[in-house]
């Protein structure tokens, strides 16, 4: 049993699949995110894969300050991801709304809506920082028991 647990934890460390979600940001973080896939940073060597469906994902990477238009989609997509899952806030926007703070069209920051596990600051953060953030998320993922449902509901209220 312990061996299996160890194996699973090892597998989670080595195969994080990301789903990328732009909640109305300026694209800056999103391009840097794409740049991570490209030859210079090539995150696939660490087993990181960008997937197209939230049902396949382990890590939710959120960019943008969560606008009114994207909030519902954000919640749906979070619910669609199977446990265990980790949320990474990429850039300043999901952390603080950055320059958009105070706008009536913004619902964020992200931690009002979802439990955020890792913050990656920067406007936009460099690819190195993004990878570092994902590495932190992976460490959480590897040791994580499925999250208590009540906590999530508490945050949503």
């Amino acid at each position: 049993m312990r061996l299996i647990k160890k194996l699973v934890s090892m597998a989670r460390r080595r195969s994080p699949w990301l789903f990328h979600l732009n909640t109305g940001g300026c694209n800056g973080c999103d391009i840097e995110f794409s740049a991570c896939l490209a030859p210079r940073y090539d995150v696939e060597q660490a087993g990181i894969l960008l997937v197209g469906s939230p049902r396949h994902a382990d890590i939710l990477c959120v960019t943008g300050p969560v606008t009114r238009g994207t909030r519902a989609a954000l919640e749906t997509i979070y619910a669609q991801m199977p446990e265990p899952k980790v949320v990474v806030a990429l850039g300043n926007c999901p952390a603080t709304c950055d320059v958009f703070a105070g706008s009536p069209a913004i619902e964020g920051p992200l931690d009002r809506i979802l439990p955020v596990d890792v913050y990656v600051p920067g406007c936009p953060p460099r690819p190195h920082d993004l990878i570092k953030g994902v590495a932190q998320a992976v460490a959480i993922l590897a040791d994580q028991q499925p999250r208590d449902r009540r906590i999530i509901e508490g945050v949503n209220q």
Partner: peptide, 27 residues
């Protein structure tokens, strides 16, 4: 990956992908 000028995943990748997916909770 190599043809695209990248390094690509290590050889155990599909195995760990499999184990990780098996350990996921069902929706």
């Amino acid at each position: 990956a190599r043809m695209q000028g990248r390094i690509g995943p290590p050889f155990y990748q599909p195995f760990f992908d499999f184990v990780k997916l098996m350990a996921k909770r069902r929706v």
